[in-house]
Structures are given as C-alpha cells and as structure tokens.
C-alpha cells in the first residue's frame, strides 16, 4: 500500500513539474503566435486598407480576434492579456498612421514579454521537471 502511495506521489510531483515546464513553453508559443498575428493584421491594414472585419476574417491563426475579443488565449499570463486587450481595444479606431504606430507599440510590448518568457523557459523548464522528479522521489522515500 505504502509503495503504491509512494509511486502515485512520485508520479504526481513529476507530472506537476512537467506541466509547469509545458506551461512555460506554451506561453512562448502563444506569445509568438499573437505577435505574428498582430504583425499580419498590421500589414494588411497598411497595404490592403480593407475594413477590419474583412481583414480579421482573412488572417488565419490559432490565436485570433473575434468580435473584438481574443480567442484561444489559455496559457497566457495577465500581463500578456493586458497587452492583447489594449491592442484589440485600439484596433481600427484611428487613422492609418495611428494604426501603424499602434501595431508597432504592441509588437514592442509583446517582444519584451516574449524575451522574458523565452528566458524563463530556458532557465526554468528543466528546473521544474527536475524539481518535480526530485520532490516526488524525496516524498516517496519518506513514505516508504
């Protein structure tokens, strides 16, 4: 019984570590997608000058804006979401120069967050996995 419990605790701790590591890489992936999406929308506004609903229908991405709301943003932090919301709110509300500046400002803000996310991912993803496994092993040994 104790062995089964120990194995379960070990597995849970290891899984927790792995999930934390996945969340870190997921954030990097989502932020990159958002950045690319904003860039493509900005390019469409600048070059095609089509109306926003038409542009948003045309730019395909797994993270996207629908009816003024970002979709599929699970895995992003509050600070990331605040940048995305600010972008969605200001989208289409100004002249072309304003839209270009708006796109650039939000891309710069996302770049800073992305740098931070990549950094954390590099530093912490292995650490989280190792910590999860070690903690699990430690608790399992104590139980046994």
């Amino acid at each position: 019984m104790a062995v089964i419990g120990a194995v379960m605790i070990f597995a849970s701790c290891a899984l927790f570590g792995v999930l934390e590591a996945v969340a870190l890489s997921q954030r990097v992936k989502k932020l990159t997608l958002c950045r690319n999406y904003i860039m493509r929308v900005g390019e469409e506004i600048r070059h095609s000058r089509k109306e926003l609903p038409e542009i948003l229908r045309g730019v395909k991405s797994s993270v996207y804006i629908e009816n003024g709301v970002w979709q599929n943003t699970a895995g992003l932090k509050d600070e990331d979401l605040s940048v995305l919301y600010s972008y969605a709110e200001s989208l289409g509300t100004t002249d072309i120069d304003g839209q270009i500046k708006n796109t650039n400002v939000h891309i710069e803000r996302l770049d800073i967050l992305l740098c931070d996310a990549v950094d954390k991912n590099k530093k912490c993803s292995r650490l989280y996995v190792s910590l999860g496994v070690l903690c699990g092993a430690f608790l399992a040994i104590i139980i046994i």
Binding site: R49, P53, D95, G98
Partner: peptide
C-alpha cells in the same frame, strides 16, 4: 462614430 466606420477609421480617413 466607430460603428459608422465599421471599426475601421483608417479606411474613412
């Protein structure tokens, strides 16, 4: 105003 521009002020600049 934003609705009149269909959320695309830049197209009506």
């Amino acid at each position: 105003y934003i609705n009149l521009c269909n959320h695309s002020v830049y197209t009506h600049e």
